[in-house]
Write a protein that binds this DNA or RNA. Structure first.
Length: 481
RNA sequence: CGGGGUGUAGCGCAGCUUGGUAGCGCGCCUGCUUUGGGAGCAGGAGGUCCCCGGUUCGAGUCCGGGCACCCCGACCA
């Protein structure tokens, strides 16, 4: 393997200063930049292209499960915001308010949406009259604002992009099925498109969404052992339906409150991609959402060679259009510079095309993840490159799983967590009695919060890691973003 | 909201102790030579030294006040 030490000196060492590494990577690879507005960021074209690919993957899955898109206003009247007590209490500290517009004080303050339950469900109360109107399955792609005190690129900014699905159902069972179905859509999307292994589970009461009866989550482990909530799906029971008066005449002629859900994933996932796959050379884009899956680096010494290489590159680009997302770097930089540049920016595959290759009717493919080189006949690129991209995806997913497994411990006491956290962070599986007191004790002692009660892999009998009472469930603890 | 740090060219920084022509590296522009793992030479452009006030013949530098941003912590769907 090529020695790559010292090539990317603009980026802090990942092991040396993880958060500086993360910030450097984002700025240097032009994913995003700080904005003139404190706590807000600009998503640059390279980052936005990534987001568009992620959107496409999610949107197709939402459509395939029967959902349609719509768009609701950014502003929420205070009276609507206040209708569900727990909900407003949960978001109050980070709500921005518009009190004046057009040179006049508003009669009613308008909140800038932190999430859209209030505005969407108030509309649903008009639209839902009969059991024949159900289920109502709507998603929206939008920006939301939460006035965070402490911000971090992609992971916690005051404004961010996301999607939020809001559905209404006739029965509790249907609503719960929807909640779990969409949670699994997030899991499948994360693994299939982002090469990001996640754990499905339920949130504790302390960690659940403000106003939800139950919150489910997919949790991923970042490269520093901290947890990232990669997507959530909420079961509201009939709480919001009662607050917003969403009721319908059922088949038996009885008027009943509906059952509602919501589920969301955001640009935070981009932060997850960076932290899960990146290394000291920079980004590593999961092939299926990478803005450029293959970057061609042309090599030549003079005009004659340049024109021969140009022809070959044109032919290759023609052949591959539609099969892979391809970009050719015709900048004036030297090839070596381009190799480093595109490794830093995480292109999954580099294709070198030089005079020697043209003479032999081939091109040299180099993988970002392993830096393995392979000479491929030009005629065979259309078949071989997608194969390699799939291999890269698989090995990235495998590596992320192996990393998570190597940083996961089964423990029986909170002291074990504290002890291990001194050395290395990760996920801690432990029996938990269900008490918020014990959950709080773990946080106070170790800084780790309860990430979820996993669907699979837990033990249903044990003694609580804190109080030693009988515990019929297992919880996963960890530091989180 | 608390603690720390930093504001000087697009970026990274030096200069401030001891006041006196605003500098360095990278990047950028032009030309020539280069190009298979971050090229070389030559020439060139680019400044509200964060802002306001004070001291002084003279302030990037000293004094006072303010602002902004970054990092750490608390808080946080």
């Amino acid at each position: 393997m090529t020695d790559v030490s010292g090539f990317v000196d603009q980026i802090a060492d990942k092991s040396d200063d993880y958060s500086q590494w993360y910030t450097d990577v984002i700025l240097k690879t032009k994913l995003a930049d700080y904005s003139p507005v404190r706590g807000c960021m600009v998503i640059r074209p390279y980052g936005y292209a990534l987001w568009e690919n992620m959107q496409a993957g999610l949107d197709a899955r939402f459509k395939a499960t029967g959902h349609v898109n719509a768009y609701f206003p950014l502003f929420i009247p205070e009276s609507l915001m206040k209708k569900e007590a727990e909900h407003v209490a949960g978001f109050a500290p980070e709500l921005p308010w518009i009190t004046e517009a057009g040179g006049e004080k508003l009669e009613e303050r308008l909140a800038i949406r932190p999430t859209s339950e209030a505005i969407i469900l108030s509309m649903y109360s008009k639209w839902v009259q009969s059991w024949r109107d159900l289920p109502l399955l709507i998603n929206q792609w939008a920006n939301v604002v939460r006035w965070e005190k402490r911000t971090y690129l992609f992971l916690r900014t005051r404004e961010f992009l996301w999607q939020e699905g809001h559905t209404v159902h006739r029965t509790e069972q249907e609503a719960m099925e929807e909640v779990l179905r969409m949670l699994d859509v997030y899991r499948e999307f994360a693994e299939t498109e982002l090469a990001m292994p996640v754990i499905r589970g339920r949130k504790s009461d302390a960690e659940k969404f403000a106003g939800a009866a139950a919150t489910f989550t997919v949790e991923a482990m970042m490269g520093d052992g901290k947890a990232l909530q990669a997507g959530t799906s909420h079961f509201f029971a009939q709480r919001f339906a009662e607050a917003f008066n969403i009721s319908f005449l059922d088949m038996d002629g009885e008027r009943r409150f509906a059952w509602t859900t919501s589920w969301g994933a955001s640009t935070r996932l981009i932060g997850g991609i960076i932290m899960m796959h990146g290394d000291d050379s920079g980004l590593m884009m999961p092939p299926r959402v990478a803005p450029f899956q293959v970057v061609i680096v042309p090599i030549f010494r003079n005009d004659d060679e340049r024109s021969r290489v140009y022809e070959a590159v044109q032919a290759i680009t023609r052949d591959l259009t539609g099969a892979v997302r391809i970009h050719t770097d015709w900048s004036d930089n030297k090839p070596g510079w381009k190799y480093n540049e595109w490794e830093m920016r995480g292109a999954p595959l580099r294709l070198e095309v030089g005079p020697r290759d043209v003479d032999q009717g081939q091109a040299v493919a180099v993988r970002r993840d392993s830096r393995a080189k392979e000479s491929i006949p030009i005629a065979g690129l259309g078949q071989r490159l997608p194969e390699i991209l799939d291999e890269v995806h698989r090995s990235m997913l495998d590596r992320a799983r192996a990393f998570r497994d190597a940083h996961t411990w089964t423990v029986s006491s909170v002291d074990e967590i504290a002890e291990q956290m001194e050395k290395e962070r990760g996920f801690f599986w432990a029996p938990w009695c269900g008490s918020p007191m014990c959950e709080g004790a773990v946080k106070a002692k170790t800084g780790a919060t309860l990430r979820c009660i996993p669907f699979e892999g837990g033990d249903d009998k044990g003694l609580c890691l804190v109080c030693k009472a009988t515990a019929d469930q297992t919880a996963i603890f960890g530091r989180s973003y």
